[in-house]
Design a protein around this nucleic acid. Structure first.
Lengths: 192, 192
DNA sequence: TCAGCAGGAAACGCAACCGTTTCTTCGGAG
DNA sequence: CTCCGAAGAAACGGTTGCGTTTCCTGCTGA
């Protein structure tokens, strides 16, 4: 039985963060009230306030932790393989359980400058570096022209996926990823 | 003096919608309370409730009206010219006074399915058609290969701009638009 | 083993905002 | 000119969520 055992430290915190994400998924970020989180995690408000100064900090922490875990990496040996792997990773995140969380992060960004800064420095900044290295490897292998506009190439594939997730609402699937790589990324990146 | 004149009908409604947008810009969508809107528009709550059933409806209405007005069109006679015009239009919207409003629309979409549907059917759907026609004209002129993946090509440029506005926070300017057209759109669309 | 820290339950006062009601006053249509 | 509908001011009760406090209890680590 896990029931009625009093949780501590790391275990308790994980349960709280999970409760936040559950609420985001089921009823949106506005449903993440201190009361609701405490109830959902079967704990109490003072426990929350002992760890996070206020509601915004808790939401920020839980969302960022989840988003960070979602970033895909790849080093398959070819540009096409790397890009397929990375974009499949994003597509999975954007179609699975994490999708509402990713949407919520961006939405919350609009009203929480601190979250915006952390998200862009941490999550997005890290992703930029990964993509930069991926492209550098491809250039070194001669698969990608050396004068490719890196700042565009490294966000092109993800942009299309984010656009569908956030703006158009159009479906995302594996066929789309392949199409993006073969019809968009390769032509852009190929020597002319 | 405009002061102390009692406004009516269309004029009053416009002032209310403007008040909503002002609040969104200055203090975020969560600051759009019925009290705040009434105060800002120098009117009273019953006036609001006479026109909109609740807070969500008012916000939805004001945001959608503003977003709809932002959609750029173009028919310059060339694919490159059309795309430059359309993307410059978006870039202007995303860097000017409308930027926080566009962000707020997408953010609000996450918690208001009715707004999401209206935004995607209306604003985005309309844009898709415009872009489809733009591409069809370009195909007819022989500037674009006939087997171009239209569903990708028509959202490619905008995706990069939306991604910067919503996700990465990276700057948007006219040089970027030119680069997108010349380095991304043209290579993708050109006969191979 | 036992002291004390941290978890958990309950209730608190407070503030904000909802949507409504009442009443007064302006101004536009006939 | 006058009448009626709409504008505007003010206050209402009700709800919700904040962040805090108090108190008890069980787990953990010395």
């Amino acid at each position: 039985m896990t029931t009625s055992t009093r949780r501590h430290g790391e275990e308790l915190e994980a349960a709280i963060r999970a409760a936040v994400l559950d609420l985001v998924r089921e009823r949106g970020a506005s449903a993440v009230t201190m009361e609701a989180v405490a109830a959902r995690a079967r704990t109490s408000k003072p426990v929350l306030y002992r760890r996070w100064p206020d509601r915004a900090a808790l939401l920020r922490d839980a969302l960022l932790a989840a988003a960070t875990a979602a970033i895909p990496h790849a080093d398959t040996g070819s540009y096409r393989g790397d890009m397929l792997a990375v974009l499949h990773g994003w597509a999975d995140a954007m179609t699975g359980e994490l999708a509402p969380v990713l949407v919520a992060v961006v939405a919350a960004t609009a009203e929480d400058p601190e979250l915006a800064a952390a998200f862009r420095d941490g999550v997005i900044g890290w992703r930029k570096e990964e993509m930069g290295e991926l492209i550098a490897r491809a250039v070194a292998r001669g698969e990608v022209r050396p004068d490719v506009p890196v700042h565009l190439a490294r966000e092109l594939g993800q942009s299309l996926l984010w656009h569908r997730l956030l703006v158009s609402g159009d479906p995302i699937d594996d066929a789309l990823v392949v199409e993006i790589v073969d019809e968009v990324l390769l032509p852009v990146v190929r020597a002319r």
